[in-house]
């Protein structure tokens, strides 16, 4: 029962805070959006704990909330946007139709998926599931190649940040 209460709290919190990022009244100032998104990441990491993904829950907080969102907030502060620079948010009928269509597709997808997966509860996980041990074993054996490839990806991202954002390159 406790698990269910936790699930509802965490899921509700995650959805509410994520919606606050996107909805114009709150999300108008990107700083509020960013703070709300950090909260959302914490709620989602709680859901990860319920899914016995402890390592991922820690990484979620460390990398998403701790690194990525700090970068976002840093950029928001750096730009220090005035109301004029934020620009007027435009509301068109095309957008309204888009929102309706996305919502309809989402409702349909949820119905299909829940009827497909049924209401059978998840079974108890094996010992060792979700531990650093289990993750490391996969990461450094089966998935060694993509792991090495990610190093190139991060290098590319560093180059990109320098090339695109540095004031003077040479």
């Amino acid at each position: 029962m406790l698990e269910q209460i936790l699930f509802w709290l965490l899921a509700g919190g995650a959805i509410l805070t994520a919606a606050m990022v996107v909805l114009p009244p709150v999300g108008r100032n990107p700083l509020y959006g960013a703070l709300s998104l950090i909260l959302s990441f914490f709620f989602i990491s709680g859901l990860y704990v319920l899914l016995v993904a402890h390592v991922m829950a820690v990484l979620q907080v460390l990398v998403y909330a701790g690194a990525i969102m700090v970068l976002f907030i840093f950029v928001i502060m750096l730009l220090n946007l005035s109301d004029k620079e934020l620009g007027q948010s435009r509301k068109t009928t095309a957008q309204f139709i888009g929102v309706l269509a996305v919502s309809a597709i989402a409702v349909k997808a949820i119905m299909v998926v829940s009827s497909a997966t049924g209401s059978k509860a998840l079974m108890a996980a094996d010992a060792g599931f979700g531990t650093v041990d289990g993750l490391a074993d996969l990461l450094f054996r089966q998935f060694l190649f993509p792991f090495e490839l990610v190093s190139i990806l991060l290098l590319v991202a560093v180059i990109g940040a320098v090339v695109l954002a540095k004031r003077r390159l040479t």
């Binding site: 996305v102 989402a106 059978k120």
Partner: peptide, 27 residues
């Protein structure tokens, strides 16, 4: 315990929220 479909439903709702954000927000 909680069924798989609930987690999927939450994830799809989040995905829809993100999609709406990408499509409608101008910032």
């Amino acid at each position: 315990a909680i069924p798989l479909s609930w987690y999927l439903a939450v994830a799809l709702i989040l995905f829809a929220i993100g999609t709406i954000g990408v499509l409608t927000r101008r910032n």
